[in-house]
Each structure stands twice: as C-alpha cells, then as structure tokens.
C-alpha cells in the first residue's frame, strides 16, 4: 500500500510517499534528509506530537509549557486535560518540570515567570 505524508520535522515540509507492507514501512521517498524517513516510520507505526500550552499560576498569570518530548498523538487530548487541571506557583523558570511522567514526557515551563 502507498501512503502520502507531509513531513512536519522542519519548515521545508517535504511530501513523502511511503510504501507499506501491512504496517511495516518498506520504502520512503520524497524526503530531503534522513529525519524525514525516520518521521515516516514513526508516523505509520506510532505517531507522536509535542504538545504546547499554558498552565495557570495560583498567584496570578499564566506560564507557557511544553511536553519535553513528543507524546503519542492519540494522548494529546488527555495530556491537555492534565495541563488544564494543573496550577503552579510563581516564580517559575524556563525548563522547570511542572508535571512529570505525562505519557512518557515531562511538562516543562518554556517561559520565566518571576
């Protein structure tokens, strides 16, 4: 089976053509660099995404956060529910872990909030 994908690893956005045998990736074409082939393999077997959002500070304001590595795509909504329930107390510094072990990632701050 043939599948068309858009590589999301970098802004070039190469159009990939993937040859599949069942769920196994046999061949990837259209990628400009090796990361594209890697992406195609993951996307066909275990698609993953980085989630970015904000967490409320109990002493006012918001801090922006991200998963420090991509999580399974189908867990994005659940991940957002955890993020929306969380509160944090300022000061927060870039890189601080706010929630740990969220679908294999940590939720870390991406902003300094003094």
């Amino acid at each position: 089976m043939e599948k068309k994908l858009t590589c999301i690893v970098c802004p070039l956005g190469c159009q990939l053509t993937v040859q599949l045998n069942g769920r196994e990736v046999v061949k990837v074409e259209g990628n400009t660099c090796p990361r594209g082939a890697e992406y195609a393999k993951n996307e066909c077997t275990n698609p993953q995404r980085t989630v970015t959002s904000t967490i409320r500070c109990e002493n006012g304001g918001l801090v922006s956060v991200k998963t420090d590595r991509p999580i399974p795509k189908e867990k994005m909504t659940e991940c957002m529910q955890l993020i929306n329930k969380a509160v944090v107390k300022r000061p927060v510094a870039i890189g601080d872990v706010i929630l740990s072990d969220v679908f294999g990632s940590n939720i870390v701050a991406t902003q300094n909030k003094p």
């Binding site: 970098c10 802004p11 980085t50 970015t52 959002s53 904000t54 922006s64 991200k66 870039i94 991406t110 902003q111 300094n112």
Partner: peptide, 25 residues
C-alpha cells in the same frame, strides 16, 4: 514571540526545536 508558545522555532539557527518564548530567551 512571547505569545507564540508553540514549537518549531530555532531548527535552522540552533539545530533544536524551541517554542517562541524559549527562542527569545
């Protein structure tokens, strides 16, 4: 960049994927 909290910045310049606030920082 302060309001662009999504990732995708800095791949070209730093070789890693940053959010807007991280790139600005």
């Amino acid at each position: 960049l302060q309001q662009c909290i999504h990732n995708g910045f800095g791949l070209h310049k730093f070789g890693e994927e940053l959010t807007g606030p991280e790139y600005a920082w």
